[in-house]
Design a protein around this nucleic acid. Structure first.
Lengths: 264, 264
DNA sequence: GGAATAGTGTCTGTAAGACATTATTAG
DNA sequence: CTAATAATGTCTTACAGACACTATTCC
């Protein structure tokens, strides 16, 4: 039998059906606080609970790449066009396929991680009763205990785990890539860039050392020649404006202060 | 409708069927040369071509986690028991789902990356006509042109790309994790560890500086008190033996000499 | 003027890389 | 003895972090 004959006779239904979904951990910074895009589920399972935006991959009609599917889901929930997502960074995070993670059937979920500048309030899509940007801190991913009343609870499925993995990836990526600029607009100041690092890492950085360090990394940022039209809210000189440079990796890297967790 | 009623009536066949496979990039070092485990396909598609070991994920009978599926595939091809794979490092590499990557149907492939010490010659499994450890260099992943006669050709499916991604991940992981020790036995010498780095990175390292650096990283290695029973083949003193320490990340990291590619 | 902030200067400890040196083994 | 190699020492340069300081702007 030739390859052509084999393919002509091949029956795709011969294998066990496994559904494939794409979920997105979309991060942005609002008012200096790291937020993640969540939807409130309108249909079972986990009706009423918060979850990451996502959906099934279209296999037959309109075949799409996984990355395209993630971009489509993100665009649907944010209300932006896929075109307007141009400045948003999107990368694959990992795949989650533990049996039982979805009570309906065997579902393999390919998770994507997105970084973007401040985006408009989302509107709930078809499967969602609600959608909004939620401060990551309010989810208390690590401390399982002591949830204040009204605080967002644990996410549906294994989405808490996926979000935690996404956050760790984001924190690590800021160290050795220039992706912090993906959270900002076209032009930004060094203090704004520092605010991104502080929001994602969750700890204050030394302003002077950060400033000198960013400028010392080749290709991280390049000056525009302009400055902000005004000083800071509570005083201070006008800051110089920069745009993202052409580096894809930072060398030397900006390491997190929080060490001592590298042992075990 | 309650969640229970919903689940009772749910029909898994309602969605487009997508097959899910697990493929493994298994790396080891033989005679100081980095090798990857490949099988020669015995059935269409791509009959006769080399490919990464892998197989479909069992969805219904014997539900298994993706990582378990990868370990099972690796064990089948290497002839080792899953138990004997204890010293082998296994991590998820990424998921590949471009439409058309498998001519039969829509197939999503979850790729895993494995590092292990020298393992026995494999025996071909059910779907394979042959299986062997192949020097990575012989595959010429980057240079598409000028294949010497008899040289292994391009791999089946998009496995060349998956292998390239796995190699880059491996090279990067040696920088900031102690995973180089996964390529070695229980006890090893610093020069043996250096040989691992040289094999994976493909470039020579300065023996003296490497030695001092490894010992300066807390938790990377710990001495056993023993030495090798004999000196090197061509002379030299007996080397001290070490085992892997308890560090999970290297701080400071061992950076590759090949910089200057971080710009673009 | 007073407070806050952007940006620069200085100093110290640590690390990387180049190179040299000593000690120990095989042949 | 000679060559090869393990392991250590020395020196220079670069960078991280702490701290001080100047300049500019808001109120």
């Amino acid at each position: 039998m030739t390859e052509e004959e084999f393919l002509a006779e091949y029956d795709p239904r011969g294998y066990d059906p496994i559904a494939v979904t794409v979920d997105v951990v979309a991060l942005t910074i609002r008012d200096g606080v790291l937020h993640v895009l969540l939807i409130r589920r309108a249909a079972p399972p986990f009706t009423g609970q918060w979850a990451l935006p996502g959906g099934f991959v279209r296999a037959v009609e309109g075949e799409e790449d996984l990355q395209e599917a993630a971009a489509r889901e993100l665009a649907e929930e944010t209300g932006l066009t896929v075109r307007a997502l141009g400045r948003v960074h999107l990368e694959q995070l990992g795949t989650y396929g533990r049996p039982g993670r979805d009570p309906r059937m065997r579902v393999i979920s390919v998770a994507y991680l997105a970084f973007g500048p401040e985006m408009p309030d989302p509107h709930a899509g078809s499967d969602a009763a609600d959608a909004s940007w939620v401060p990551v801190e309010s989810l208390r991913l690590t401390a399982a205990a002591s949830q204040a009343p009204g605080t967002t609870r644990k996410l549906a499925f294994d989405h808490s785990r996926i979000l935690a993995d996404g956050l760790e990836r984001a924190r690590a990526k800021l160290e050795y890539t220039p992706l912090a600029t993906a959270f900002l607009g076209e032009a930004f100041t060094i203090p704004e860039l520092r605010a991104v690092y502080e929001s994602v890492w969750g700890e204050p950085l030394h302003a002077g050392n950060f400033h000198r360090k960013v400028l010392s990394v080749p290709g991280f940022v390049e000056g525009t020649g302009d400055t902000t039209p005004t000083g800071g809210r509570r005083g201070g000189p006008r800051a110089r404006l920069y745009r993202a440079g052409d580096a894809r990796l930072l060398h030397p890297a900006l390491l997190r202060p929080s060490s001592e967790d590298d042992l075990r």
